[in-house]
Design a protein around this nucleic acid. Structure first.
Length: 711
DNA sequence: ATAGGGTTAG
């Protein structure tokens, strides 16, 4: 744990505090660090697919408890330590050894504003400068000479403050400085730097800071916080930290504004440990963080989806008696969403209303998004009614988020009303994403006719088609077997600049699997060829019975390696479906094997002592059937070898809340029936159960023992 | 945008 304390503050001027590391380990957030580490490791080992394929041992998927074992060991050890050495609190308040503070508890004072009698003339002059074009620097300089009053300190400051574009501010600063009528004070640099920050001109800002040092002009907290936030906005985090450390070196203590700016820098650059260390250290020396600091912490935990962290922020605010404002609530709501806690987001929102705060567009956007993703139709609709009844503010992003929510939940009529509202609202004309959301809704609802109409409307309105809209339409038209329309939509989209991605290719591939005539399949393959020639070549290779398995394996690896992670499993699913459509069952089994080998189907098989299960929820119809058959073959072998079997067997298809898995349960059920397999629908929807007894007798009849050894 | 810090979709 390399903390910022040892790299910046202590090294700079506080070497006697080498014990700070210990303190930060034992104080409050240490439990947070552990829980965060724990969560991260679980997700890494169980759900993330590798970017590059390596063969995975199929039978050795470690159970969750196995995965957790090393972690629980380390966690336990740390917790023990915390108990053994749980007295450092008294050290914190030991008066004989007060902590050296890391920030000034007083904010920097601003100089008082003094009235300028020439304000009217100078404002008008600045307006003129603002509205002037910017073809030539010399032209602008000529305009400056028309200043109605001499550029005294106060006059120059007023104009400097009124200029908009950073180029103009910068030239004006240099012009005033060159006149040498008065010494340039810090405030002139600060105002100019702020303007440069709008233009993200970090290099110029840094040059000005260097100039200040050379000219002996004092850099104050405002200067530093402007430099730091500009570096942050330019993603130059190292630069931000460099200037922060420089403050201490020159003996200037940051105040809370600079301090929370640097907290945000560490947070945005992913240095969570450092943020917590700095936070703790400042609180330990008497800082009472304000809402902005808590918003920074909340955002950081939200980005990590860290629920414990979010709770910690809420607890800290409560214990320090800091009332959350709208921004803090917005940040925490968003964070709750990322942490997958829709219920807690809802209570937090209610708490916000009870505290008398009014939600703004961002609050509502966060909440609508959460309800949509959670498919909480009732809450989403109730919220929408409330929004309309209370006339809460709407903006463009909120409209589009509402449309996406409708797509997530499948609310077609409501979406149509929103879409019309949007057209009438004047300020929020539907854009590419609004249309895409509507295409998504019509597409997943199988409304091919409406989707086509909307596509035409979109083209007429001159709204840019994007790849997702194209994908939704292709999928919808494919299901409706309107292959000619599909081809025309694809061509039009490509003409209009859509770059097909792997998802669109996966979609075309799934349509190919659905095609009944080879004529249609050829048409779709034509589209696919324009998007991904290698994939088409691979399809042809796979469906050619003469191709050797080893060749398929090598090419599979190449194709899947070149595919975006989220499209790999769909590709494999579709390829299996295509093979089954061509009655090439063995090839389908080979592909399922390869998909499993390369980790595309984690968690397909699950075993406990009492029950074994097959989870086909993320498989296509053909892949699920193949997986079932494969499982039965394996079980038949186990029966022949008279090895132990559990009492219960489960096959899980899910209920198809996701639009791509619609119908999986039904087709899986009829496949079971066709095989006369003893799996029966259970109380839980989308779950099929068989007892050991029934399954064994069925397997014995289906796979006779005499041919066993070669099966 | 009137010298400095925090929040919004795909």
């Amino acid at each position: 744990m390399a903390t910022v304390l040892s790299t910046s503050i202590d090294v700079c001027f506080n070497p006697q505090y080498s014990d700070t590391k210990k303190h930060s380990l034992f104080s409050k957030p240490s439990s947070l660090r552990q829980s965060r580490t724990r969560k991260l490791t679980i997700s890494c080992s169980s759900t993330k697919q590798p970017k590059t394929l390596e063969e995975e041992p199929i039978t050795k998927t470690p159970s969750l408890s196995e995965q957790l074992k090393p972690l629980s060991a380390t966690t336990l050890r740390q917790e023990q330590q915390t108990h053994v050495l749980s007295k450092p609190k008294s050290v914190w308040v030991n008066p004989t050894r007060p902590k050296r503070s890391v920030l000034s508890l007083q904010r920097q004072k601003r100089s008082a504003y003094s009235y300028n009698p020439q304000i009217k003339d100078l404002r008008a002059f600045a307006q003129k400068l603002n509205s002037s074009g910017f073809a030539e620097k010399s032209e602008f300089l000529a305009l400056l000479d028309e200043i109605p009053h001499p550029p005294s300190r106060d006059n120059a400051l007023l104009v400097l403050n009124s200029l908009r574009e950073w180029q103009k501010t910068h030239i004006f600063f240099d012009w005033v400085k060159a006149k040498n009528l008065f010494p340039m004070e810090t405030i002139f640099y600060n105002v100019t730097m702020k303007s440069l920050r709008f233009g993200r001109q970090f290099q110029l800002i840094e040059a000005m800071a260097v100039e200040m040092v050379e000219d002996g002009v004092e850099l104050d907290n405002i200067t530093y916080s402007t430099i730091i936030t500009c570096a942050k906005r330019c993603n130059l985090y190292d630069k931000a930290i460099e200037w922060f450390e420089r403050m201490y070196k020159t003996g200037l203590m940051p105040d809370e504004v600079t301090y929370s700016a640097i907290l945000d820098v560490y947070s945005k650059s992913g240095k969570v440990e450092e943020v917590l260390s700095l936070y703790e250290r400042a609180v330990a020396t008497g800082w009472k963080p304000d809402a902005i600091a808590f918003s920074v912490l909340g955002k950081m935990f939200g980005e990590a989806g860290d629920y414990d962290g979010i709770r910690y922020v809420l607890q800290e605010m409560k214990s320090m008696d800091v009332k959350p404002n709208v921004v803090v609530y917005n940040t925490l709501l968003e964070a709750m969403g990322r942490a997958g806690k829709p219920g807690l987001a809802r209570s937090l929102f209610n708490e916000m209303l009870e505290s008398g705060l009014a939600p703004n567009e961002k609050t509502l956007t966060a909440l609508v998004k959460i309800y949509g993703k959670a498919r909480w139709a009732k809450d989403a609709l109730q919220l929408w009614e409330e929004m309309k009844a209370k006339k809460w503010p709407m903006d463009f992003i909120l409209y589009n988020t509402l449309l996406n929510m409708c797509a997530d939940i499948g609310l077609e009529e409501e979406a149509e009303r929103l879409f019309d509202d949007m057209k009438e609202s004047g300020g929020c004309k539907p854009d590419s994403f609004s249309y895409t959301a509507m295409l998504n809704i019509y597409g997943s609802g199988g409304k091919a006719e409406k989707a086509m109409k909307l596509f035409e409307e979109m083209l007429e309105a001159g709204v840019q088609v994007n790849v997702m809209g194209c994908t939704c339409l292709v999928q919808c038209l494919g299901k409706a077997k309107r292959i000619d329309d599909l081809v025309s939509v694809f061509e039009t989209s490509v003409q209009r600049g859509v770059k097909p991605d792997d998802r669109l290719c996966g979609c075309l591939l799934s349509v190919m699997a659905l095609c009944e005539s080879s004529e249609d399949a050829e048409k779709v393959m034509g589209c696919l060829r324009r998007a991904n020639e290698k994939l088409v070549a691979f399809v042809k290779l796979v469906i050619d019975e003469k191709t050797e398995f080893e060749t398929v394996k090598e090419e599979f690896k190449l194709v899947i390696n070149g595919t975006q992670v989220e499209a790999r499993r769909p590709f494999c699913n579709c390829l299996i479906d295509i093979c089954r459509g061509k009655k090439q069952q063995e090839r389908a089994h080979e592909l399922l094997y390869l998909g499993t080998l390369f980790g595309l189907y984690p968690g397909l098989h699950n075993k406990t002592v009492k029950e074994w299960s097959l989870d086909v929820r993320s498989l296509s119809v053909g892949a699920a059937e193949t997986a079932l058959e494969e499982w039965m073959r394996t079980l038949a072998n186990i029966v022949r070898r008279r090895e132990d079997l559990p009492e219960v067997f489960l096959a899980q298809t899910g209920t198809g809340t996701h639009r791509f898995s619609q119908g999986l349960a039904n087709s899986f059920a009829s496949h079971l029936e066709q095989l006369a397999a003893p799996f029966k629908p259970s109380d839980r929807a989308g779950v099929f159960v068989a007892t050991k007894e029934d399954l064994v007798s069925w397997l014995e009849s289906k796979f006779p023992p005499l041919v066993a050894s070669q099966a």
